[in-house]
């Protein structure tokens, strides 16, 4: 930059990086060599299995004998399979209730914590801990007992004069214990919200205060719009994860999805079909339907996001 030459200021300025660029291109053989573990994994463990599982979904396959082509029979059977309908229903409720509630709690606690004048660090850690432990078998065991007939949840209700029951083994309430376990893990999205709250420039609030805005107005006009990209990110992530929840429903129902299939989350039903009944063709079809559902919902979220997700930098560019 400081010495424009005959070659011209522009190319002189880009000299070293152009050289580096050439160097990077010259090594594309090495690049592929270093990528090879990942490329092998991509072909052998992802793309190949995806293709094969799509094919298996049109077969009867019991793992031991050769797959037997049956056309679309697995997909047709799904429409008639009451357990499939039940597991889909249970999973939709689980996702539709647990994800929004979890995000609302996460945002509320992030707001509360952001304003605290001390103790932010320790509380952030304590609130996050359930997210770290929540997917484990041990936690699900605790849940099973806490919400059992003799569990502490009923003891706590007793203090308020409410009569308890076995929340786990009552069909009407079993799923809500799974939802509660999911909401209990609000810490991860809360931590992400908290980090985003710190990014909001304080002068926006100061300007709003000059204009006489109250806390509610500030929340809906400044905080929430600026957080929408994070809300969107958390929403997509949580929805995709929630659709695949397995361990809690397995442990809390003792591997059955009971009582009366009310905790039969999709992944558990798929597991039972594949690995206890060895209906691998049907399970493959279920996997593809799951992929389609997740894909459609994610796509819908992305498409509608234009209407409610606010990107500050987009506004600045105009």
């Amino acid at each position: 930059m400081s010495m424009p030459s005959a070659a011209g200021a522009h190319s002189a300025a880009s000299g070293p990086s152009a050289q580096a660029r050439r160097w990077r291109q010259r090594h594309s053989a090495s690049a592929f060599l270093m990528l090879s573990p990942w490329l092998i994994g991509l072909v052998v463990l992802t793309i190949g299995p995806m293709a094969m599982s799509l094919w298996l979904s049109f077969t009867n396959f019991d793992l031991l004998t050769t797959p037997d082509f049956v056309g679309t029979r697995n997909y047709a059977y799904m429409l008639r399979d009451p357990r499939f309908a039940q597991s889909l229903w249970v999973t939709f409720i689980y996702v539709a209730v647990s994800v929004p509630l979890k995000l609302v709690v996460a945002l509320a606690l992030a707001l509360l914590l952001a304003k605290a004048s001390f103790g932010i660090g320790p509380y952030r850690a304590i609130f996050y801990l359930p997210s770290l432990l929540g997917g484990s078998v041990a936690t699900a065991i605790v849940w099973r007992i806490v919400f059992g007939a003799d569990g502490i949840f009923n003891v706590a209700l007793g203090w308020f004069g409410i009569e308890g029951r076995s929340w786990i083994s009552t069909p009407d309430t079993a799923l809500s214990t799974l939802i509660a376990l999911s909401i209990w893990q609000f810490g991860a999205p809360m931590v992400i919200f908290l980090a985003a709250l710190k990014q909001i420039p304080a002068d926006l609030y100061e300007a709003a205060a000059i204009d006489g805005a109250g806390p509610a107005r500030m929340f809906f006009s400044i905080t929430l719009p600026l957080l929408t990209p994070i809300v969107f990110f958390n929403l997509v992530l949580q929805v995709i994860n929630a659709f695949q929840t397995f361990t809690p429903s397995y442990v809390i129902s003792g591997g059955t999805g009971g009582p009366s299939d009310t905790t039969l989350l999709y992944s558990l039903y798929l597991y039972l079909e594949a690995f206890t009944k060895l209906r691998m063709g049907y399970a493959s079809a279920m996997a593809w339907v799951l992929l389609a559902i997740i894909g459609i919902i994610t796509a819908a979220l992305f498409i509608t996001s234009g209407r409610w997700v606010f990107y500050a930098d987009k506004g600045d560019r105009t």
């Binding site: 052998v44 299995p49 599982s53 793992l63 995709i240 996997a287 799951l290 992929l291």
Partner: peptide, 25 residues
Amino acid sequence: LFALMLATIMLPHQVTLIPQYTLFR
């Protein structure tokens, strides 16, 4: 390839589960 790599982050593992199991078996 980078886009493919990002796409695999979101891929539900159920879609590769059974062929992977068959392969490892």
